[in-house]
Design a protein around this nucleic acid. Sequence first.
DNA 1: TAAAAATACTCCATAGGTATTTTAT
DNA 2: ATAAAATACCTATGGAGTATTTTTA
Lengths: 96, 96
Amino acid sequence: MELRELRYFLAVAQEQNITKAAEYLYITQPSLSKQMQNLEKEIGRPLFIRGNRKILLTEAGMLLKKRAEELLALYEKTEAELSAPLEEVQGEVFIG
Amino acid sequence: MELRELRYFLAVAQEQNITKAAEYLYITQPSLSKQMQNLEKEIGRPLFIRGNRKILLTEAGMLLKKRAEELLALYEKTEAELSAPLEEVQGEVFIG
DNA sequence: TAAAAATACTCCATAGGTATTTTAT
DNA sequence: ATAAAATACCTATGGAGTATTTTTA
């Protein structure tokens, strides 16, 4: 389970469609399809119910969605903090 | 910035020594050394002060350590939840 | 019958390895 | 003088692509 896979997973959950999610991510449909199969295999349970021209999340899928959002939010916060001047991170510096 | 790199980084921060951390991680010293250089390049600032037979963390390194611990804890929690029966995850099922 | 997903390959970027050199105390 | 880190180079795994076939409503 890599951050890349979580990003891809959220795109699929959002678009409810692998083809559209792949466009959004600027990768091809087969690549994304394979990544999602790998993710399901790693986790050991299905994440999607494929059909009806829409992809829906299983219970495990809904749980993963919640956690993936938390993980990526924390990840992005970390990146932002590390690219900002370090003083700002501490929240202890007063300007002006 | 990948989860793998964060795991490696925490091992180095813990051992204060790339060679020992590499042993702990079951990878070679040059591989770990290169990964840490890549991580520092990605982040755009040094994470370590090398010398004195010990590696110490810079301010950015100390911040990353905190965030990496949070990220990996959330990651492991997620993995555990997904490999447990789903009912247990919801925290809404009463047994006995 | 037509979207969408899956399969079957090919390619290449990079994680990881071995051997060696450089750096600091 | 010596332990640790860095460098140089090689290998192989797997992420991503193109072309095509299978699903399913």
